[in-house]
Design a protein around this nucleic acid. Structure first.
Lengths: 202, 202
DNA sequence: AATATTCTGTACCGATCGGTATGAATTGAA
DNA sequence: TTCAATTCATACCGATCGGTACAGAATATT
């Protein structure tokens, strides 16, 4: 057995850089030149470390989900908080990422899901995005269906409908954030949406 | 002066075919091969008839606006109809196009505006999309601000906020329609949105 | 019929795409 | 120090991108 030349880049920060390029430009729009340049490595290094463009994209998506998606769900089960507070905190947590000025605007999953609908994604990547896109609606649906306060308010009668509504609004804020709408403007959208499902007064 | 060979294709139907390709795949995603194949012509014919890919895209966008965007506005000024009815008819008119199974799903303008935000559109095309994207929010804003019934209800106090909210919902339904949500499902989203701005009861 | 004009089809252009072969550089173990 | 193992950098691959040169086919005027 003999050792070899040591890797000269940090795999995680390279993956993070790739994630931001995919997030900004989408799968098709991100060229290997774009990716490797921002990752600070050459193409052969990328291929040996990540396989190919598709598997890099999938890994970047999982990196995105771990960093910017998982954190939201716990807002929904925060104890001693009203349903309205928990739901608004959840939605604002997502919106804050969409509007973060130090990151690409909008939601990476919603962006790439649109690419998938155009048939621009390879098969496995499409499956990953489809599963990722189901996450937020499922969180919302489960909350509205099973939460005691939601039941008391009768929201469980329209759980699916209201979950779709809120998910639709979040898709809307994602594209609005992409077009440089501010967090303040879009917070008012969230507030109006909460009125729509009867959790707040107009 | 002498005549020449006659053109062998219908310019309008070729433009219509190109529009559908751009609508389905976006500007970058639509290759010249895709376009000319569906238009039923060869590349030199396309270039002599439309100039280049960008001007074809701009003309296709204007064709889209003429066919699928202008028709909505008149719903807002329909006489002898309540504000709620007019607004819902307006929104449903847009939603019906987004969900039309004989057309590409979603709104072409909202789709390409996303591309513009990624810097994937040439300069002039970006300007055209930006102006087109302002159209629906401006319709909504003007309605809520100046309509007598809206004023009576106090909606003019929050015209900009509610216009942004409804435009955001329409962006959401566009991406949802792209992911094969049905007209029925998304109609319930519209209804919930109308509750949000106080034009309907939960 | 001859000719000027216009369109169509093919074949091609340089650039870029995703992906890879190859050799030099660097390392650990023998 | 030699050698096997691994990474890095360059240069290249076929395919496709948007766009065009050019020749032949079709038309209107003379």
């Amino acid at each position: 057995m003999a050792g070899g030349r040591k890797i000269e880049f940090d795999r995680t920060s390279a993956l993070n850089a790739a994630m931001k390029i995919f997030w900004l430009k989408g799968y098709t729009g991100a060229s290997l030149s774009d990716l490797t340049e921002s990752m600070g490595i050459n193409k052969p290094s990328m291929y040996s470390a990540f396989g190919n463009k598709e598997s890099l994209f999938i890994e970047a998506t999982q990196h995105y989900l771990a960093q910017y998606s998982g954190e939201h769900q716990q807002m929904l089960s925060e104890p001693h908080q009203s349903l309205k507070i928990r739901l608004k905190t959840f939605l604002m947590s997502i919106l804050a990422v969409q509007c973060d000025e130090s990151l690409p605007r909008g939601c990476m999953v919603m962006l790439s899901t649109g690419e998938a609908a155009s048939g621009c994604l390879p098969e496995k990547a499409t499956q990953v995005m489809s599963k990722a896109a189901d996450y937020i609606p499922e969180c919302l649906g489960a909350l509205l269906e099973h939460d005691p306060e939601a039941k008391a308010l009768g929201l469980d009668q329209h759980a699916a409908k209201h979950a779709l509504f809120l998910a639709t609004v979040l898709n809307g804020t994602s594209t609005m954030a992409r077009n440089h709408k501010t967090l303040q403007e879009l917070e008012s959208v969230i507030d109006t949406a909460l009125v729509g499902i009867g959790l707040s007064e107009g």
